[in-house]
Nucleic acid binder design. Structure first.
Length: 117
RNA sequence: CGAGUGGGUCGAGCGAUCGCCUGUCUUUUCCGCAUGGAAAAGAUGGGAGGAAAGUCCGAACUCCAGAGGGCAGAGCGCUGGGUAACCCCCAGGUGCCGUGAGGCAACGGAAAGUGCCACAGAAAACAGACCGCCGAAGUUUUCCCGUUUAUGCGGGAAAACAGGCAAGGGUGAAAAGGUAGUGUAAGAGACUACCGCACAGGGUGGCGACACCCUGUGGCACGGCAAACCCCGCUCGGAGAAAGACCAAGUAGGGAAGCAUCCACCCUAAGGGGUGGGCAGAUGGCCCGUCUGAUGCUUCCGGGUAGGUCGCAAGAGGCACCCAGCAAUGGGUGUCCCAGAUAAAUGAUCGCUCUCGACAGAAUUCGGCUUACAGACCCACUCGCUUC
RNA sequence: UGGGGGAUCGUCUAAUGGCAGGACGAUGGGCUCUGGACCCAUUAGUCUAGGUUCGAAUCCUAGUCCCCCAG
């Protein structure tokens, strides 16, 4: 538990550059969960970073896509400690449409714990 | 009470905790000679829509191109007004629809020209004749009557032909006015009356589209399609914020200026000069016209990618009141500052209330249009029923 | 975000504004001892909604979906 009470979500913990995304895509490990494709690769920053990708085919309108991004980011923010020091890219699959916060939390935390072990 | 028409407003709300984007102020630290810049913490303010959407119009803004001329192309199309502008809005006219409140209209020209109008039908655009009607006058044949010796002549009837007609039938999306009468062999604007229509002239009202009235002419000519070509009138240079401006790693080498420089022929001893021609590019549609040239040598030093900063949030701005106007809208006064990201900000959890929550997320900015949408409320009006 | 193009049977592709045609496929039948090939027949379509027109795949308006280009 490196960040026991820190649940902030500043720009530092987001993957923001195209080159950084590319690095994760090239070096990262890929894991599939029912609703997401997840890529992750270790970094040497001492804290995790996240990038979320939601394609047009997941949800046809912008409101739906924003909704999924917000849910995923919220899960990450509340559980940053579980991600140790990794760059994580989460890609939403087509079946994400009716996803709720609780479903996403269960699924992503389940993945994070497996990865840590 | 029911059904409906037109217009407008809103688009779940409140509280707590954790979190995101951003403006301002304060403090601290660091950098800098300094104006100032960066980071952190705290305080405080703001934080998606009526359509933010589609990208269908119109602009602002930016860059590119602009000697000039012609052709082509695109858009618009009743009238007057509004506007920065518009394919928008308001008011009005005309036509059509609706019992009505009201709604809808690409609504210039078909007597400038060209083209098209399948099938059906007789005929589809300087009309035409299938069935049908007529067949008087004309021709032929037959029959009857009169007369005559007889041919014949006269009269009548029937049939056929030549011919006449366009009223009725039928076809079609569309068939060249309607009603009544006269007329005739049958009919027909052939003629007459009334209605309708077209054209010309004049008057009245209106800025005008146009409306109404009067007079005359025409028996009616001028079918439809211009969201077919086209004609007439008006408008239009191209691209778009991934526009564009500035700063600028790494890697790779590029750019500008000057001189010589393509092919053929002619002149010349040579150097070189002249004439003609071709190719490619620019002039973001094409043509004429105009301009430029590959490569080598010499000299000079910038251009640009990742990334960053700006553009980028005070505006044809919102709200309130007053004035002008039927209105769209304009003018004045006061007041407010109200998203500004860049892998891209509004979410999660809990509690409460209700009608149990639709369509949907700013990306340069405005003005419109169009499309999507659970519902709630307000104003004005229409029709029907019932009661007083 | 901006710009451009397209949509016709299951697939590919034709059609001066006048009955939507062809190929491949599918289904059924014939031929054959059986299958293939071949022959015959059938099936099924103008992306959607309005408008112009007598009549629309075609012309006009709005919408839906797909593809391409620009970092």
């Amino acid at each position: 538990m490196t960040f026991p009470s820190d649940s902030s979500f500043s720009k530092d913990v987001r993957i923001r550059r195209n080159s950084e995304f590319k690095e994760v895509f090239e070096k990262g490990t890929r894991i599939r969960t029912p609703h997401f494709n997840v890529l992750y690769s270790p970094n040497n920053l001492g804290f995790p970073r996240i990038g979320v990708i939601v394609g047009k085919k997941t949800s046809l309108n912008a409101v739906g896509r924003n909704r999924i991004k917000r849910i995923v980011r919220e899960v990450f923010r509340k559980n940053k400690a579980s991600f140790d020091s990794f760059d994580v890219v989460i890609i939403a699959k087509k079946n994400c449409k009716g996803l709720t916060y609780k479903n996403a939390e269960e699924e992503i935390l389940g993945f994070a714990e497996k990865k840590l072990s």
